[in-house]
Write a protein that binds this DNA or RNA. Structure first.
Lengths: 152, 152
DNA sequence: TTATAAAAGGATAAATTTGTCCTTAATTAT
DNA sequence: ATAATTAAGGACAAATTTATCCTTTTATAA
C-alpha cells in the first residue's frame, strides 16, 4: 500500500506530535526508538518533512530536536504523504494505467473509484491532531513493542 | 498501491480472459503488446499464474499460448493477487506495524479498517469473468494506447 | 570562546523490484 | 523424423528503494 518511507513518515510525525512540543523537542534517537524504525533512514525522511517547516519543525544544536507547531497539527494526514511524494495511492489507477480516467476507464475503474475516494477522504479529512487525540484517549500503539522501551 | 508485478498480473489475466479461449490461445507477444507491458517480465509473471493451472492455463509448442478455463474465469480477482503473493494490501497495517490489530490498534486502524474491508470485498466478490463482461459491454481499456496497436 | 550536542547533508552500500536475454523443453505441422 | 514454434526456466543486469556512515553546520551550555 504505502512505501516504507511513507510509513515511517506517518509514524514519525504522529509520534512527534504526540510527545513533542516546542519546549520539549524530541531527538532522532528517541523518535526512531519510539516508532521502531531505522534511525538514519528516519532522519533522512524527517529532512523531507522539515523543509520550510512543512510538517515537522526542527532546530539543531543543544536542546534541539523535532516538534510540531500548532499550525502543523491541524494539517491533514495527506500533508505528510505530500512531503514524501507518496500521493500515488490516491491518484493512480489500480491496474497501473497511465490513461485511466472516467472517460477511458480500466476494467476495475468503476469499482475502485469508490475506494479511492474514501482513501482520499481519510487522508484529507483526518488531521494529525485528530490522530493524536485518539491516541490519547484510546490505548493505541505506534510501534511493535508491547511495552515502551526502557531508556538506557 | 500494487507492485508492477501485480499490475501486470491483473492486466495480463484480464486480457487473456477477454481474448483467449482454449482453441484460440494467445502468445506472450500479443499479451505484452495488448497490455503495454515488458514482454519478458510479463512472461515471468505468467509463470506464476500458470503453476498448476492456478489461474491461467498454457501449452507450449506450435499453436500454444495462454488461455483461461471456465473454472478459472469464475475465480475472484484475489486469486491473481494470491498467485503473485501480493495480498499485503488487504492484510497489512497502513502504518506498517507488525502487531497492529483490533486489540492493539495503531492510530489509523479504526478509520482504515473500513477501507481495507472494501478493498478485500472488491477483490473477493469480483470474479475475473465479471470484469470481462463489463469490458465487453462498456468501452473499457487495458492499455495506454488510444486505438489497438496494428499487427506488423 | 570553546566544547558539546544536535540536525542537515552527502556519499555510499545493501536489498529488493523490475527487466532482459539466452538456453531448454514441449508440442505440432510438414 | 525434423524443423519450426512456443512457453518454461535460469542467469544476469538495471533501476529503485531502503538503509548506513561520516562530515558539516548550527545552536547552546559551560
Amino acid at each position: 500500500m504505502l512505501s516504507k518511507t511513507a510509513e515511517y513518515a506517518l509514524r514519525a510525525t504522529i509520534y512527534i506530535a504526540q510527545k513533542g512540543t516546542e519546549d520539549n523537542k524530541l531527538g532522532i534517537d528517541e523518535v526512531a526508538e519510539g516508532i521502531d524504525s531505522p534511525k538514519s533512514f528516519t532522519a533522512k525522511i524527517l529532512q523531507l518533512l522539515t523543509q520550510n517547516d512543512r510538517v515537522v519543525s526542527s532546530v539543531r544544536g543543544r536542546n534541539g530536536g523535532f516538534y510540531l507547531t500548532d499550525r502543523a497539527r491541524k494539517l491533514p494526514v495527506r500533508a505528510i504523504l505530500e512531503a514524501v511524494e507518496e500521493e500515488e495511492v490516491i491518484t493512480k489507477c489500480v491496474l497501473g494505467l497511465k490513461e485511466c480516467s472516467e472517460t477511458r476507464p480500466c476494467p476495475m475503474h468503476l469499482q475502485y473509484k469508490a475506494i479511492k475516494k474514501q482513501l482520499k477522504q481519510l487522508f484529507e479529512k483526518t488531521s494529525i491532531q485528530q490522530l493524536v487525540e485518539e491516541s490519547n484517549k484510546g490505548n493505541l500503539f505506534i510501534n511493535n513493542q508491547k511495552a515502551p522501551k526502557k531508556r538506557s
